[in-house]
Design a protein around this nucleic acid. Structure first.
Lengths: 222, 222
DNA sequence: GGTCAAGCTTTTATCGATAAAGTTTCATTG
DNA sequence: CAATGAAACTTTATCGATAAAAGCTTGACC
């Protein structure tokens, strides 16, 4: 998503760091962000921090109000329901188009992405940007890869991020997603067999499962 | 979308101004943005301009590259095709849900929004934020209003903006959208009559029309 | 004639300080 | 004793200057 190399700007580096921390839950939802605190922590002036926060707010990870600064976006079951609903609708549209129009190359992409996902160990140490998350994202992207719309794909990716935040929160709260592998395999199979209805059904069920898990965990906390 | 009141920050004001200019085409696509130039023009320092550009890049209206500054996002027929495709897919999903689940209040919203749209004169003087554009946006929002997903609605709105940019470019290039009123009426009627298939067909045709118009105009220029 | 590198110019990224809110505290008043 | 409002304190928004890249020019060299 963004390079952490030496030639990156401070703003980019800080952006990536904060993004990780928000996604992984290290920065708790709904907390006010203290500019000065961040400046001291990173040892920089306001400008790069401000720029990083601006970029984060474009991803809905923080909220900005004029003259009242930034705060970490809150999470809620309602929002997760909303995200899940949007995911189902948009992924359905993209997946159906993809299944209808995808060719051999598309099938191969899926198989490859699935294979890589299976062989990637889950590294729960740094959840925000782990290899597994990346492989997982790639797999879901590959399913929709033949839908023919970069905008649609970008939105699905955005929704993936939003859901990922909840998944990671659930993970740190003790949730488990053990049998996701089997679900992925079934989705892949249905997709490349061109069984559109079933592929869609399985994919949506896959999304709903995250929601159901979180419902339990969050309800317990509140 | 954002207040231009006196209590707004400079960054917000500049953001709104530049947004208008990019949408309306006053700032040509693909031109490099000169920070200093903008600072002098607005009579401010770098910070607020930078912040405004950051916010614009979150709406895909400008592109940013580390250490290489900003440029106005390019436009292309390919991108318009992409946007149109995404609009059709997502609006279809949202519209079908909305038709299936909307109640009397939803119908009334549509009728009201349509009425207001019809009585709003087209003010082509300041196209970027004219009353008509706002009423037009509201009408399209109202159709999807019962889909039950804020995220989906936000994305449709985002797509609306993206398409609006092309529409305004077409307008300034001499295009005309004369019979859109009748299309809107037909869409409204199909929606509140719960004829989902036809409503979707008409709505997508409505989107495709913008694309077709632009195809002619842009092809002529290039 | 074309290529490449050193030096110059322009532009961006970052800094530290200041101005302009917003927020809190606390004494005062009805 | 609650409500009010002004002073003190925080925090944010903006500024003008500086450092660090990137882009451009020029001229030597092959």
């Amino acid at each position: 998503m963004s390079d952490t190399q030496g030639n990156a700007t401070l703003a980019s580096t800080i952006f990536a760091t904060l993004r990780d921390e928000i996604l992984s839950g290290a920065l708790r939802p709904d907390t006010k962000i203290n500019l000065r605190g961040l400046c001291e922590r990173f040892g920089v002036a306001f400008s790069p921090v401000r720029e990083a926060l601006n970029r984060l707010s474009s991803q809905n990870l923080v909220r900005q109000t004029d003259r009242r600064g930034f705060k970490v976006s809150p999470v809620s079951l309602d929002e997760l329901s909303d995200i899940t609903r949007a995911r189902c609708l948009v992924n359905e549209a993209a997946l159906r188009t993809s299944i209808a129009e995808g060719g051999g190359a598309w099938e191969e992409e899926i198989v490859l992405a699935f294979h890589r996902l299976m062989r990637t160990p889950r590294d729960d140490a740094s959840p925000g940007d782990s290899h597994w998350t990346l492989a997982h994202r790639r797999f879901h992207q590959s399913l929709l890869g033949a839908c023919g719309s970069d905008w649609l794909l970008a939105y699905c990716d955005h929704l993936f991020d939003a859901a990922e935040r909840y998944r990671l929160i659930g993970l740190s709260a003790g949730g488990n997603w053990g049998d996701a592998d089997e679900e992925h395999r079934a989705i892949m199979q249905a997709a490349i067999d061109r069984r559109a209805d079933e592929a869609v059904r399985l994919l949506c069920a896959h999304f709903e499962k995250t929601k159901a898990q979180l419902r339990l965990l969050l309800a317990r906390d509140d």
